[in-house]
Nucleic acid binder design. Structure first.
Lengths: 210, 210
DNA sequence: CTCCAGAGACGTACACCGTACGTACGCAAT
DNA sequence: ATTGCGTACGTACGGTGTACGTCTCTGGAG
């Protein structure tokens, strides 16, 4: 029973599964090897080290973004679509998001979204430098939003179960936080993301008319 | 030579130093203990575990934000000030930024900026839910920007030394990236941050007039 | 003064981590 | 038949966080 021959792809795939199932911290070479029913050191025949493996994880996740780009649509719609596509994979691989975002890739998978976004922005009429600046703003917002969404960053989302101790903050020291506790504790991630995205897109459009 | 008696504050402080000097990955209980000329397990008399220590690091850094808030100023100016104050400590403790940002604090130090921002926004005329939404957008943008700035997130900033191989990307696959490589490889972090921040503030102001 | 309790510093030990290195096996080319 | 290479694997080393037991010191109570 040769069981399938152990390949880089299979290793990366089970790494992703493991991250999604048990979290990024629980990923170890030993755990991955055990999952595959294989000796630990066998992994190193296909992957130079753990860092490279995590790069591959990021790349694989990133390459699954489904861009459905309509070249005839308004640039605002196209930018929105790209941002939402990005968010969608983060939603699909929530525990991998931190790994993806915190690792700069110079590979095709990493550069493709950048290329796409720059093309869209320049097609809209932005100059080269302007397009780069705009892209950076969008990326910052998207990354920040996704990190909140997957719970690494604060903002009181109900990331993990309740300390529904709403009244636990001192309302004398923190009157606003106290009063707005209900709003702070619930978060429709999709709506919040869309709100800020729309804000940015409108601001960009306004910027363009000058 | 009793050398000063080893306290939680001293531990946190040398942890911060160590992070800034050697990076967040290099921080271990043993390294901190060695730095203090102390046994490893002595640390646990003042800190329950490493997680709590990193929380304390985040809290300490956060508590050093200098808010110079002028209650008579325009709310736009006040929001800008708060965002810049936040960025400033990240600039002062670059290697700690990731630690600060990736750890949600329910403590005073973590809640104070939130309280402040909410008060400012509501004072400007935003409703409760609107203020929360606005704050979330700002936080997302700030967090995303800081992560780029300290080099954990991509975007081609010259975070570390050169692969000034500008021509290394295939200009056929990535014409935009190829053409805009110079712009992509240089990044005036402060200007970029200010640009997006202004964009957001203006968009918010526009949102307010309705 | 003695005595004793509590606190803090520390050493040892364990389980786990990434991975360098050496070994064993199967298949392709010589 | 022999050689060589690629792959799987075990062992081992130096690192990690921390549970536990021990030692020493200090500051009141008797």
């Amino acid at each position: 029973m040769p069981a399938e021959p152990l390949s880089r792809a299979r290793i990366v795939s089970t790494a992703i599964d493991l991250i999604e199932r048990e979290g990024a911290d629980a990923v170890s070479m030993r755990a991955i090897a055990a999952e595959l029913g294989v000796g630990v050191m066998s992994l190193y025949n296909h992957v130079p080290n753990k860092e490279a493996l995590l790069d591959a994880v990021a790349e694989t996740v990133l390459s699954q973004i489904e861009f459905t780009d309509d070249p005839d649509a308004e640039w605002t719609d196209r930018v929105r679509m790209q941002a939402l596509a990005f968010r969608q994979i983060a939603h699909h691989y929530p525990r991998c998001t931190m790994v993806v975002v915190s690792r700069q890739l110079r590979s095709t998978a990493g550069l493709l979204p950048v290329e796409r976004a720059l093309a869209t922005l320049r097609g809209a009429g932005f100059g080269g430098d302007e397009a780069v600046r705009a892209l950076r703003v969008f990326i910052a917002y998207i990354v920040g939003s996704l990190l909140r969404e997957v719970g690494v960053t604060p903002t009181f989302a109900p990331v993990h179960r309740s300390d529904i101790r709403v009244g636990e903050v001192d309302p004398l020291l923190f009157p606003q936080v106290g009063e707005l506790a209900p709003a702070l504790h619930e978060c429709d991630h999709e709506a919040e993301f869309a709100f800020g995205l729309e804000l940015l897109i409108q601001a960009m459009a306004l910027q363009l008319k000058r």
